[in-house]
């Protein structure tokens, strides 16, 4: 996987964790989980974000604001964000060249 995509996936996982903790905090704490490290996690998120290429970070932010998720998995050669077909030529490029975007919706593509 492209190193920048690895960071973007980690960033999105972290954003989801922060969001879910804030939204479901009461439910999770009823189960016994504690979240005393939330502020530290937010700081770690900022640190991680700083390692991402500024143009990709900006694109990530824009997509997240628009769609909720900026990075989406490709399943059966389909972008799972908009269900557009992803050319098979993209697959061979994913690990080496650059972070790939869906040509239809612009989401960042991840091959799980």
């Amino acid at each position: 996987m492209h190193p920048q995509l690895q960071l973007l996936v980690a960033l999105q996982d972290m954003d989801q964790m922060i969001r879910e903790t804030e939204e479901s905090r009461e439910q999770l704490e009823d189960l016994g989980f504690r979240h005393e490290g939330l502020e530290a996690l937010k700081n770690a998120r900022e640190e991680l974000s700083g390692k991402i290429d500024p143009s990709l970070a900006s694109w990530y932010k824009r997509l997240t604001a628009r769609w909720g998720h900026a990075v989406v998995p490709v399943v059966s050669n389909l972008c799972t964000g908009c269900f557009a077909s992803i050319p098979s030529s993209f697959v061979s490029k994913t690990n080496v060249d650059k972070v790939q975007k869906c040509e239809s919706c612009g989401r960042l593509l991840y091959w799980p």
Binding site: D13, M14, M17, G32, F33, L41, A44
Partner: peptide
Amino acid sequence: QMLQSREHLGSTAVGPGIAFPHGRTLA
């Protein structure tokens, strides 16, 4: 990385002798 981040949020060892590392990931 996701599970480590979750543990930084707070330990998931919440039962007597039991832990529930958990989270969501694109992976």
